[in-house]
């Protein structure tokens, strides 16, 4: 593993750590946004199934499902 990082010199660990953390933070943000969205949509669908509408008899709840 270290010879893979050899061209980056003696501070390879720091560079690798910095990029790894960046990837984790950004991935975390993307995952959070995706999961949160899916959660909201699931709950909205659930309410819809139970017959709750946004306005009385409004059909534009279906729009929420577009991603």
């Amino acid at each position: 593993m270290t010879d893979l990082l050899a061209p980056f010199g003696e501070h390879a660990g720091f560079i690798a750590a910095a990029y790894a953390i960046a990837v984790m933070v950004i991935a975390g943000l993307i995952v959070w946004v995706r999961l949160d969205g899916a959660h909201q949509l699931r709950q909205l669908e659930d309410l819809e199934r139970r017959g709750i509408r946004r306005q009385a008899g409004s059909a534009d709840d279906m729009e929420d499902r577009r991603t």
């Binding site: 949160d36 969205g37 909201q40 949509l41 909205l44 309410l47």
Partner: peptide, 23 residues
């Protein structure tokens, strides 16, 4: 991109809230 996606989630969240209140 993240901001717009998060804004969409927030709009959904508020719709959900008001719908749950009505329910």
């Amino acid at each position: 991109a993240l901001h717009i996606a998060a804004m969409r989630n927030e709009v959904l969240r508020r719709r959900l809230r008001s719908m749950q209140a009505r329910a």
